[in-house]
Write a protein that binds this DNA or RNA. Structure first.
Ligand SMILES: [Mn+2]
Ligand SMILES: [Mn+2]
Ligand SMILES: [Zn+2]
Ligand SMILES: [Zn+2]
Lengths: 148, 148
DNA sequence: TCTGCGGTTGCAATTCAGTCTCAATTACAA
DNA sequence: TTGTAATTGAGACTGAATTGCAACCGCAGA
């Protein structure tokens, strides 16, 4: 069974890059939780450990994790990228509540299939897609109807 | 028949805001072409006219045009937002070529319907959505297969 | 195990889109 | 025409992300 570390090591080797202790720590921290995360949060989490890692190194490592197929940019909110696992986690899309910021993940096979059809129609080779649906979650709908 | 200017005037009036010459010029320039645009491009186009308008005013006006339902954020590439017309142009989604930057617009009713279904399932009130599919256009596929 | 060659790191400086402040200006309703 | 609240441009500012550089270090080969 291949672990995320195996995958990362392979990718680095292929590119003639080194598996440093910093990259190892970042990888470990990234895969210690399944939640979406941004650079600041990751930086904060790492700082609390015995070994702090600079923001620059984090910014330089995340693209390597993306290239390895381990994570991807999931959302962009509040002027930041939020990342999520790809390795070990099936693809899905997101509902974003404008009211409270809640994020709901969903997967719909029919949506995926239709996108393939669209690409076929235009002779387009699909590499990746991102679907973000903005609106109001149940709770926020209630809040709004109460306040009017 | 309602024009984009009517729409903008109405919206401004509703909010107690003024229809200034700057806002009028920005509106005019935005609707002078149907292509996607970003702030820098719009700023450049306006500067070439008799009357230059500051970036700050453009940044302050675009949200008003969005609120009015005249334009929307269509894409995010190269760290910038790209905008497009909503007024007078039916909703659609985008295929983005990673190779050459080409943007293909498409509309698929079934995709729209399925998204409504997904929202219903989660009790989510859909306000807007954005689907961006990244990949390679026909030409870029050929280029790649030639170079290997 | 030792060595040397790249690749890597942290830091601070930098970039750049986007926001904000403020004094001067202007739309527009009365 | 006038009063007033909204608006403007200029430049300072913010904050995420990038970069240059000198010291550092992983690792393949000896
Ligand atoms: Mn997710
Ligand atoms: Mn479009
Ligand atoms: Zn909510
Ligand atoms: Zn292309």
């Amino acid at each position: 069974m291949i672990t995320e570390e195996d995958r990362f090591r392979d990718h680095l080797k292929k590119k003639g890059l080194k598996f440093t202790s910093e990259r190892k720590l970042i990888l470990k921290e990234v895969f210690s939780s399944h939640k979406h995360f941004d650079v600041e949060e990751l930086f904060g989490r790492l700082r609390k450990k015995d070994r702090a890692i600079s923001r620059a190194t984090i910014y330089r490592t995340l693209p390597l994790l993306i290239e390895s197929g381990l994570i991807r940019e999931a959302l962009r909110c509040r002027d930041r990228f939020y990342y999520e696992h790809v390795f070990g986690h099936p693809h899905h899309d997101h509902l974003l509540c404008i009211g409270c910021g809640k994020v709901i993940e969903f997967r719909d096979e029919r949506l995926e299939k239709l996108q393939n059809e669209v690409c076929k129609k235009y002779g387009f080779e699909l590499i990746e897609h991102r679907l973000g649906i903005k609106g109001y979650c149940k709770k926020c709908q209630k809040k709004i109807s109460k306040s009017t």
